[in-house]
Simulated scan of single mutants.
Amino acid sequence: LLRHAPKTFWTVGLVQFFCWAAFLYMWTYTPGAIADTVWGTTDTETEAYQTAGNWVGVLFAVQAVGSVLWAIVIPRFKNHKVIYALSLLLGAVGFISTLFITDKFVLFISFLLVGCAWAAMLALPFTILTNSISGKNMGTYLGLFNGTICVPQICAAALGGVILSLLGGRQVSMLVLAGIFLVVGAICVSFVKETYPEVQDETVRE
């Protein structure tokens, strides 16, 4: 099945690789990053660091709200690729902006934008993929496609410590890297070609 998988399976999978690696770094490094940029501490034993960690929970809730709101917007775009790339670019702005923001409330804007990328990641890859495959093996392909979610996170986790060291040890650098990954993912969306086998089959029958 993988040998005969439609090209869309692999091109969307490439986008997925950068997206899920980015979010793995968000989940891993946001507490340390926010403690550094907003509370001015990297000492995990301080009360300020613990306060920052609690605030990250609030930021993730804001991201969820942004995701829900953006999920209402996504269906209004008929071109899946356009809204997919736009969503990832908005998320990239959100991630990269954390390097410059020192106010905990202004970070709400950053994570609302990150929520845009999250909404697109949950909906559009599977929509594009299911449009490109026939019903016969759809369930199997969707199961195999889950590999494009776990494999990137495994790779990102394995390399995270090395990358952090190369970037100077500041955890906010990993959020900037996450933003760069989303930019690359948005570029990779251009490689995706949506196909509709049911329509093609009907044309052949005619």
Rank of each mutant, 00 (worst) to 15 (best):
S134A: 11
Q63T: 15
Y196G: 01
G94D: 06
L2A: 00
T148Y: 15
Q50K: 15
F95I: 02
G161C: 02
G66R: 05
G161A: 07
W10K: 02
L89Y: 10
S110K: 07
F95N: 06
V38E: 10
V58P: 03
R3L: 12
V56L: 07
T98D: 01
V176A: 14
S134G: 14
Y49K: 04
Y84G: 04
L69E: 07
F77V: 00
I187N: 02
T11Q: 08
I101G: 08
W39H: 10
C116W: 01
Y29S: 09
G66K: 04
G57Y: 11
E206Q: 14
G94V: 03
S190E: 02
L159W: 07
G185Q: 03
A156H: 03
C150E: 01
A71C: 01
S173E: 14
W20A: 02
V58Y: 15
L88T: 01
M174W: 09
A48N: 11
G115T: 03
Y25H: 15
A64R: 04
L88S: 04
I128T: 05
F100N: 06
L164F: 04
V93D: 07
F105N: 07
T130M: 12
F23I: 13
A35Q: 08
V68N: 10
E202P: 08
L124H: 08
S173T: 01
Y141C: 02
L182T: 10
L1M: 14
I101V: 13
F108N: 05
S165R: 09
Y84K: 00
P75N: 00
K104A: 08
Y49H: 12
L99G: 07
M26P: 12
P152Y: 10
K136T: 14
N54Q: 15
